[in-house]
């Protein structure tokens, strides 16, 4: 690796350029579509850059005028935030005690593996009874009902990540606190959780992104702007009568913005989370 010929260096740079183009081109095109006039997008030959830049679609989708297409989009945006937020918080609340228990008492670990194994279940295998169950509880088309279902997708992941976080905190520190008379919850509050804060943040981000991405359950269990999430709203836009491809692209940009920003800013934490499961597991 130390002896690099100029040819090899050129080859590496060419490959890197190619990779960058492959990654960026579709994303840039999504953005360009969102700011191109409708006529440009159906022109032949296709114009790759708009004559006049048009941001009006963002205003259309983010409008708050009552009973408008924008209001419906904003409602689904808010639903997505609420569902993902509630499910994430609840998942952490379940994951912290469970992860700590497995980390400190490995003999109960098998139950966590059972929980993680549920990841194999295709959502279609649970959808019908869940549909009846939510219906029975009056939780269909309800953000909390959807969050409850998402909780079961997020909790196994967050528990697993939290467990690997707790594993790296020496028991001795906790033991010292307990000898000083602190109870279990006090020990967590003072010692364990502050030390596990980075893992907790990573888990929360993951959970949020997972919930933000979910489509199948949202498609089945929500029906209107009281609970419909962004992914369903976008699928509706893409499948229905939106003659302007730019508007679909704009909705896509807006839906992608939160996870993409999180991804860019929190890169390091996310990658460590992605790999810690893999490398250690």
């Amino acid at each position: 690796m130390e002896r690099k010929s100029p040819l090899f260096s050129i080859f590496i740079h060419a490959c890197a350029l190619l990779l960058a183009v492959v990654i960026l081109a579709p994303l840039v095109w999504l953005f360009v579509m969102s700011i191109s006039p409708a006529a440009d997008l159906t022109a032949k030959p296709l114009s790759w850059w708009p004559q006049t830049v048009d941001f009006s679609r963002y205003a259309v989708l983010l409008s708050s005028v009552e009973n408008s297409a924008g209001a419906a989009f904003v409602a689904s945006l808010i639903n997505s935030i609420v569902v993902a937020g509630v499910a994430t918080l609840a998942a952490l609340a379940l994951a912290i005690p469970a992860a700590w228990a497995v980390s400190r008492t490995p003999s109960v670990g098998w139950s966590l593996y059972m929980v993680i194994a549920t990841y194999m279940l295709p959502p279609v295998a649970l959808a019908v009874p869940l549909y009846f169950g939510l219906s029975h509880l009056g939780l269909l088309n309800n953000v909390f009902g959807l969050a409850l279902v998402y909780l079961t997708i997020l909790a196994p992941f967050t528990t697993w990540l939290m467990k690997s976080g707790f594993d790296s905190i020496p028991r001795e520190i906790e033991a010292a606190a307990m000898i000083d008379g602190a109870g279990l919850f006090a020990t967590w509050r003072i010692i364990t959780l502050p030390l596990a804060a980075p893992v907790m943040a990573t888990s929360a981000l993951f959970a949020f992104l997972l919930a933000w991405d979910e489509f199948f359950y949202a498609l089945l269990f929500t029906s209107d702007l009281r609970a419909k999430t962004l992914t369903v709203a976008i699928a509706d836009l893409a499948g229905g009568r939106v003659s302007d491809y730019g508007l679909i692209a704009t909705a896509g940009v807006l839906a992608a913005l939160p996870p993409v920003v999180i991804g860019l800013v929190m890169q390091r934490a996310l990658i460590s989370g992605l790999t810690s499961g893999g490398v250690k597991g």
Binding site: F132, G138, N141
Partner: peptide, 8 residues
């Protein structure tokens, strides 16, 4: 599907 939700 909305039939199942009380407030469909």
């Amino acid at each position: 599907l909305a039939q199942g939700s009380g407030g469909g």
